[in-house]
Design a protein around this nucleic acid. Sequence first.
DNA 1: TATATTTATTTGGTGTACCAAATTTTTATT
DNA 2: AATAAAAATTTGGTACACCAAATAAATATA
Lengths: 221, 221
Amino acid sequence: MAHFTHHSEENYLKTLFKLETRQDKKVNNTALAKALNLNPATVLEMVRKLTERKLLQLRPDKSIRLTETGKKKALLTIRKHRLWEVFLVEKMNYKWNEVHELAEQLEHIESDDLVDRLDKFLGNPSFDPHGDPIPDKNGKTKPNLSVPLSDCIAGKNYTVINLIDTSDAFLQFLGKLNILPGIKIKLLEKLEYDNSFSVEVQKKTVQFSEKVAKNILVQAI
Amino acid sequence: MAHFTHHSEENYLKTLFKLETRQDKKVNNTALAKALNLNPATVLEMVRKLTERKLLQLRPDKSIRLTETGKKKALLTIRKHRLWEVFLVEKMNYKWNEVHELAEQLEHIESDDLVDRLDKFLGNPSFDPHGDPIPDKNGKTKPNLSVPLSDCIAGKNYTVINLIDTSDAFLQFLGKLNILPGIKIKLLEKLEYDNSFSVEVQKKTVQFSEKVAKNILVQAI
DNA sequence: TATATTTATTTGGTGTACCAAATTTTTATT
DNA sequence: AATAAAAATTTGGTACACCAAATAAATATA
């Protein structure tokens, strides 16, 4: 009855989009196959189909590129994924590191209207719980102006946007300090003698190393 | 990557469950195929697979029956479907007649945990927007005792449970009479000469047609 | 440049879930 | 019981999305 064409199609487009934007080298079949965790033969076959459908191009130099249509579709899938992540964290009380797999399922629900309603229900968020920007219905995103806390200026206030290291160990460590994306902090001091950081979090002062500060992305308030 | 086995499996079990409970005759392959809108050959093949997996039985008399395991699975799918329907109506502001297709998609999201959280988020509803009972996580349902007001007995007290017609026009009409789900009413009289109804709502007496009464579901107090 | 290595591509296959059409079996009707 | 009708079943197919292994082509290295 139902066809899941869109499911794998969306995965290909989304993955390709991520590879295109997060690396600057051209994406080849091997890279895409690795990212999708699929056999290169499978991927090549699918890439050809998607090329036929004008969602991407398999170029003469064998690099793979999204077309404008493909890019738009990819962004809409990313939009769905990130909105569902917000839903799972804000409404279902999941932790931000628990929601990826579920959002991976939910993103394939077919209804543009539902996505728009969800967007509204969540208060039109611009960033997901990981701090990644949520494209609007036209695929436009607000630039993420976050920088590592290690590059910030003492005395100023920031919102924690995002973490670079997302290992459980790091999350647990930050958890103890009450630091997580969305929280507001004040950088009190950079301590010269050991390069450590002194930060105010929820009226309390905490200390941590530069290594930690490098892994926390913040945005000035 | 993902397997959709569960998807069609859930559809077969759910549909069979509905056929088993809503009719009293035995379910045969033709009936199931018709209900699923699939070819009998397809259904027979699948029924055999599901019989192997001990989710249902293809009996010597060729009737098809859920096993206990199958019934439980069916009820959990129905639970998911109805909870998502509540979500769509209560949170996404869909009308109850718009949500079936979307819930059909959402019910296949695989996560028991999410379903339980959704249940809690929605306030552990016992009935979906159509008035159908929502099984709990063990598959147990509360019997739905609501009936159309048109079938009720004059002189008794009722709680309005639910509306069948939920068009704006109808809601507005009822609004003027102060009738909405949750409110207590007393059926004063069924007036023979024009089949109209006389009802006490919040100490006032109101009159309306049988058409209206048919669209109000109530439960005896 | 010759060779090794990596990448791309082809070939022949799988499982799932579906179908139409032909055949067999069962049930109903005369 | 004979026949008609309905239901069950078999047969031979399809599309989709995947794979492993073989081969070809491109790239890198000695």
